[in-house]
């Protein structure tokens, strides 16, 4: 049987989807864990701050969701979910793979960095709970880049679907 390189297309695309979910998910898991440790410390001293520190803990959890989103969109596009869909050629598969990379890589690193900002902000809330509004802003600054990555990944994946190669 002759080897058809185009059969690898879907493999690459799936690899990209899985990578986005994996790396962003791992990043968020680490990040939310870090936040949780700091938050637990604050709650030991003052259980009344639970609501505030919980929000700060959850902030770096969004990257995992974005990763899931990218994975899902890719899986739908290549027909792994929902069936149907056009044939994924080798080139197309590679394009899908590349399109998933921003979310995978930026997702991981932004989650971990955001967790560091979150932990710092939890410290702010511990000492000065009235400054919660400002404390919330620091982790959000980091998240911007995860959102940009998400955007590029979404646009690229939907764009690749419309390409004719």
């Amino acid at each position: 049987m002759k080897f058809d390189i185009n059969t690898l297309g879907i493999v690459l695309a799936l690899l990209g989807a899985v990578l986005a979910a994996l790396m962003a998910g791992i990043g968020s898991a680490i990040a939310v864990g870090m936040g949780g440790q700091a938050a637990a410390g604050v709650v030991t001293e003052d259980p009344g701050k639970f609501g505030k520190v919980l929000i700060l803990q959850l902030l770096p959890g969004t990257q995992g969701i974005y990763g899931l989103l990218i994975a899902f969109i890719t899986l739908t596009q290549i027909g792994v979910i929902g069936g149907g869909g056009a044939e994924v050629t080798f080139a197309k598969g590679l394009l899908y793979f590349a399109a998933c990379l921003p979310m995978a890589i930026v997702g991981y690193y932004s989650a971990v960095s955001q967790a560091k900002a979150s932990v710092g902000s939890i410290g702010v809330v511990a000492k000065r709970p009235e400054q919660f509004g400002k404390a919330m802003l620091f982790p959000i600054m980091v998240e911007t880049y995860a959102i940009f990555a998400l955007l590029i990944s979404i646009l690229a994946i939907t764009g690749v679907g419309n390409l004719n190669i």
Binding site: Y66, L68, L69, F72, I73, L150
Partner: peptide, 23 residues
């Protein structure tokens, strides 16, 4: 201005995850 692209990203996130749940 680019920062407002989060309106799209977050809106899509809600919708797509909702779709996954429904599916």
């Amino acid at each position: 201005v680019l920062s407002y692209s989060r309106l799209l990203a977050l809106g899509l996130a809600t919708g797509v995850i909702g779709m996954v749940i429904n599916q």
